Amino acid sequence: MHLILPAAGSGQRFGAGIPKQHARILHQSLLEWTLAAWQAIPISGHKLLAIAADDSVSRELAASFSDVEVIHGGRERADTVLAALMHLSPRAEPEDWVMVHDVARPCVENKDVEQLLQTCQQTQVGAILARPLTDTIKKIDNHGRVTTLDRSALWAAQTPQCFKVGDLISALEQAKERGLAITDEASAIEAMGWPVNIVTGSERNIKVTHPADAALVEYFLKLDLTT
């Protein structure tokens, strides 16, 4: 199994004036917390961190993690993941599994990753971590009318997302050729008409998007440090 950590974005929604992965939580950066989490998770293959070409800070932060290879990503997430896959492909088999994980999710848990990989290996179908929605979900049309959706079939996608190297390359290349908006790896696979399984992830595996998210992540990290 290989790992790709896309981190070439600017994290504009975080609003801190710096790339989100550089934001400090407790005593180190968000990027360092996530890299440390993956040091505790067995990876038999390659670990690639894909950053912006001018991001010298991330390169320096990653230097402390000798098992992580730093490469340059692209403008959009899909471009970054595809660039990482093309870098990986000469050293990987098309049938190898690769996980793609948000650097902004530092609280990923070993048990969830293990369950995700086991599901993929047993079914030979790619899968993602996700959580069932618990809020009442509303849809607003162009006229401002509100409709309540059936949340029983709705899930919030997390990462990592796990697919075969060859399948993910094909799906991302096809999506790029068709001009599709790809928000995660599963959406590219879905666009090919291929199935995607869901494994229930931890509620701790939240993504830091806004400053309030960082406060919640800090709470979870403090719990881990005191146990």
Rank of each mutant, 00 (worst) to 15 (best):
A175R: 15
R131H: 04
H101V: 12
K222D: 04
E190Q: 15
K176F: 12
E185P: 05
L133I: 13
R77C: 10
E185R: 10
Q118F: 02
G74S: 05
I189Y: 12
G73A: 01
I128V: 14
L180I: 14
I43V: 15
L5D: 09
G179K: 15
V199G: 13
A50V: 01
N205I: 10
T80S: 12
I137A: 11
A181Y: 15
G9K: 12
N142R: 10
K207S: 15
G126L: 07
S44F: 07
L26K: 04
L88Y: 00
I189T: 08
I140S: 01
I51D: 01
A186P: 06
T227V: 01
R91G: 00
A50R: 04
G166M: 02
Q174C: 14
A181G: 10
R204V: 00
D55K: 13
A36Q: 15
Q161F: 08
V208G: 02
G166F: 03
G144T: 07
T123Q: 14
I137R: 13
R24I: 08
V108C: 13
A191Q: 15
E218S: 12
A92G: 06
S10D: 12
V165N: 04
D96E: 07
L221D: 02
A215C: 02
L85F: 00
F14E: 03
L85A: 01
A157P: 09
R151G: 01
G74D: 02
E32N: 09
V98W: 06
P90A: 00
C107L: 05
I189S: 08
G201E: 14
S10I: 10
M99H: 02
T159E: 15
T159I: 10
A92F: 05
R77G: 10
Q39T: 04
R151M: 05
L48E: 03
G73F: 03
T226W: 13
G126R: 06
A153H: 13
L35I: 09
A40G: 05
K47N: 04
G193N: 14
S29L: 09
H72T: 11
R145W: 07
T34Q: 08
P160S: 07
R13E: 14
K164L: 03
S152P: 01
V165F: 07
T119Q: 13
H143M: 10
I51G: 05
V113I: 03
R151P: 03
G193C: 14
V113P: 06
E109G: 00
I206L: 15
Q118T: 05
V217G: 03
L3V: 04
P106L: 06
D55H: 09
V146H: 05
V103P: 09
